[in-house]
């Protein structure tokens, strides 16, 4: 599908979706509450078939967090970027690890680095950081570590 066709289809599925201009791929802003049902539609709808989640990450905007999902379809080769805004004090979003299995590891990474709580995640534990790290999220903008000097 071309970007225009995708736009029409997405608006049909989720009328509240807001499109963002300027990116290389179609970028859709959604509410975090809509994510799980929307993700299922993206994956299972025959004409969309986004079966490959190639990048899952989070951005700290100081006022809020944004989850970013890059999806592609291995059948039609179209790409889409989904963004969901989260509350910085209590970031919560549904897990998609049962839709795209790769999300399980990537969500664990976002959990420890940004403190995003993925609801219904099968195994939400620290992955990269050492045991007992809980509470501090190194990839957040306000994280300082004078001992290890991550900031060069």
């Amino acid at each position: 599908m071309t970007t225009e066709e995708l736009k029409i289809k997405i608006t049909e599925l989720l009328p509240s979706a807001a499109f963002e201009e300027g990116g290389e791929w179609l970028t859709v802003n959604i509410g975090s509450a809509d994510w799980l049902s929307f993700a299922k539609q993206l994956r299972n709808e025959g004409s969309l078939f986004f079966d490959y989640l190639f990048c899952l990450t989070c951005i700290d905007w100081k006022t809020h967090l944004t989850m970013v999902y890059h999806l592609t379809s291995t059948l039609y080769r179209h790409n889409i970027v989904i963004k969901a805004k989260l509350n910085r004090d209590k970031p919560e979003i549904e897990t998609v690890s049962n839709i795209w299995k790769t999300a399980e590891f990537h969500e664990r990474e976002s959990y420890e680095m940004f403190g995003v709580n993925f609801l219904n995640h099968p195994d939400l534990r620290l992955l990269i950081l050492p045991d007992g790290w809980e509470g501090k999220n190194p990839m957040r903008k306000d994280f300082e570590d004078p001992v290890n000097m991550i900031k060069l």
């Binding site: 992955l127 990269i128 950081l129 050492p130 190194p138 990839m139 900031k151 060069l152």
Partner: peptide, 11 residues
């Protein structure tokens, strides 16, 4: 994981 994590993204 994490034995050789250097937080390259943050760096």
């Amino acid at each position: 994981l994490g034995f050789i994590h250097r937080s390259i993204e943050k760096m």
